[in-house]
Design a protein around this nucleic acid. Structure first.
Length: 471
RNA sequence: GGUCCCAUCGUCUAGCGGUCUAGGACAUCGGCCUCUCACGCCGAAAACGGGGGUUCGAGUCCCCCUGGGAUCACCA
């Protein structure tokens, strides 16, 4: 039978790192197996679900490149279906109406907990339902003898005693079904073969298996993935900083880098750290999924991003960096040497955002010179060699990096100075800063006209120093 | 507290009984390269939580302890 997996987030907030990892594993498994991947939005909690969240999740999935073959399905549009199955259980005596109020149940739960006992519904409404109430929820009559065994694809065999399970509510008093019920119906009806999800769901699995049995529906295989923890080793949350997938997009991360980092949190392939998406699809396997929770490490993710930034074709990075340049107020898309500029920035940038920031000088009209840099490098002593360099550059044709380099050599020879002596002042005049890509490539990308213009401007900024003209 | 899961360097991990005086990666610290910053290269420090078994032999299998996490909703 062909594999079918799903990612089923609830739209109660943005797609976070942990959810993305779950989605990724499901997607990779389906792709690796030549199967189908489904996106399903679990929005049966009308209190907390929002369309905005659903849109954002879809947007994040698209950005990550985790394309789905079916969906997105919305559970809120399938309510009639769930009710049908509730009715079925009810008529078969496998579920019953519960008239207890939330307050009463809450009270009992507290009492049980304070006595150190496990809170468990006492089946009051099964045995003698109150006649004076009309609002009810529906509970599943869960078998309380024997055990339920989960043959988990990553955790192995896990056994639960059925008397640990209690009669869970499958239909709320407002008529909305609950998670443990809808997930079973949908996974079964949609033909999901493998349910891969966070291991925080492992405890739900035996109840769901009981539901499958009661409804006589096929039970999928389960695989419970270890959780991703924050630096304090607790469940990931906003407290741990930027956890939204789209936040990483906005910070200039590459989607394949985010995927690459996330997949290595709980999965490995020998010593390999960097993978293309194609490689992941080819190499992914449930056999190599780990069992223990991992701590999210933003520093390593940054490093992974850097690796992908370096290995991507400059044209590709140029395209993706565009929004970040525009954000800074320039639009280099029509610049004849835009791609060349990006090439000079790739290996020294960890994110697209950083790349745009450090490459901004290429595309501005002139350049603002940093005060400190000016003071340190634009000194009277560099005027003669700088002036000579400009002279040489002006007559250089063709204006290639190699020929530019020759101009520097000539100046070094004529003035008996080292490259550093002339390169730094140049850099400051051309980029406004003391840090930039290699000086020859900077001049090349800028082009003769602009480079000369900036150098002359730089020279003009140098104060005449009558005291020590040769120093 | 009950139940369930987990346990190799600070972090992510390799290891699927002998090749482990435990390998790789991030981060850290040295050095080299160099027109700046990076990249790169070389090197250092850094781990099998504890105790019992099983076995000729255990990081690798079993049990206990300890520690961590998750979960016990008319949330998902």
């Amino acid at each position: 039978m062909s594999v079918k997996t799903r990612f089923a987030p609830s739209p109660t907030g943005y797609l976070h790192i942990g959810g993305a990892r779950t989605a990724l594993f499901n997607w990779l498994f389906a792709r690796n197996q030549g199967g189908t991947f489904v996106l399903r939005i679990e929005d049966t909690d009308s209190e907390r679900s929002t369309e905005e969240s659903a849109r954002e999740i879809v947007e994040a999935m698209e950005w990550l490149g985790l394309n789905w073959d079916e969906g997105p399905y919305f559970q809120s549009q399938r309510l009639a279906l769930y009710r049908e199955y509730v009715e079925r259980l009810l008529s078969q005596g496998k579920a019953y109406r519960c008239y207890c109020t939330k307050e009463e149940l809450e009270e009992e739960r507290k009492r049980a907990l304070s006595q150190g006992k496990k809170p468990r519904y006492n089946r009051r409404c099964l045995e003698n339902p109150p006649s004076d109430r009309k609002e009810f929820a529906v509970r599943f009559l869960c078998p309380d003898e024997g055990e339920t065994v989960v043959e988990d694809l990553v955790k192995g065999t896990v056994v639960f005693k059925n008397d640990e399970l209690d009669d869970l509510i499958i239909l709320r008093s407002d008529g909305m079904p609950t998670y443990n019920f809808t997930v079973v119906i949908d996974d079964a009806l949609m033909g999901i073969t493998h349910v891969l999800r966070g291991d925080d769901h492992l405890n739900n699995t035996p109840r769901q298996i009981q539901l499958y049995r009661a409804l006589d529906l096929p039970i999928p295989r389960f695989g419970h993935l270890p959780m991703i923890l924050g630096h304090d080793r607790t469940r990931l949350s906003k407290r741990h900083g930027a956890m939204s997938v789209l936040a990483y997009r906005d910070m200039g991360y590459l989607p394949e880098a985010v995927n690459n980092y996330l997949v290595r949190l709980g999965w490995s392939f020998g010593d390999q750290e960097i993978f293309t998406m194609e490689e992941l699809i080819e190499k992914f396997s449930l056999d190599n999924v780990g069992t223990s929770a991992g701590v999210f490490n933003p520093e390593k993710m940054l490093w992974v991003n850097h690796q992908h930034l370096k290995m991507s074709p400059p044209e590709e990075i140029a395209r993706r960096a565009l929004p970040f340049f525009r954000e800074l107020g320039v639009d280099p898309s029509n610049h004849p040497r835009y791609v060349d500029a990006v090439r000079t920035l790739q290996e020294r940038s960890k994110t697209l955002k950083e790349l745009a920031e450090s490459g901004l000088f290429y595309f501005t009209d002139g350049v603002d010179i940093d005060e400190g840099a000016k003071k340190k490098f634009l000194k009277p002593s560099v005027v003669p060699p700088l002036t000579r360099l400009v002279e040489l550059l002006k007559e250089t044709e063709p204006f290639t990096e190699e020929n530019i380099s020759r101009c520097f050599e000539k100046v070094m020879e004529e003035f008996q100075i080292k490259l550093g002596k002339i390169a730094q002042p140049c850099r400051v005049a051309l980029t406004g800063k003391t840090v930039s890509p290699g000086i020859f490539e900077v001049i090349y990308v800028l082009g003769k006209e602009e480079a000369v213009k900036r150098l002359e401007k730089g020279i003009s900024l140098i104060p005449l120093d009558a005291e020590s003209p040769l120093k």
